[in-house]
């Protein structure tokens, strides 16, 4: 069972690499934000799986809960910040 969790974690990290492509090369700022949000929600699952691997779920589940809250607050704050920026629009036009 431990091996299974190990492979699950490795595969999840590879999938996070796919989302990283959108976060790095997204045409607009909002696309990057979508990519970062997707990585964050996968990290929450990865933290719990790491806890299962090390047989310390009771500690890692608190970290995962705090990470989920941080992810939510980061998305809210950055979207409130970027909606006042006009250069979002220009970045589309320049492309």
């Amino acid at each position: 069972m431990d091996n299974l969790f190990l492979y699950f974690g490795i595969f999840l990290s590879l999938i996070m690499g796919l989302s990283l492509y959108r976060a790095l090369f997204g045409p607009t700022v909002l696309d990057r934000m979508v990519g970062v949000n997707a990585i964050g929600s996968k990290t929450t699952a990865l933290l719990v799986v790491i806890g299962l691997l090390y047989h310390r779920v009771n500690m890692f589940v608190d970290i995962a809960l705090a990470y989920a809250m941080l992810n939510f607050i980061a998305v809210l704050a950055s979207s409130r910040y970027f909606q006042k920026k006009k250069n979002l629009h220009e970045e589309i036009g320049r492309k």
Partner: peptide, 15 residues
Amino acid sequence: TATHAIVDAGIRAGL
């Protein structure tokens, strides 16, 4: 709520 916040930012920026 997070999804709606991102959509709202996009609409207000005029995409």
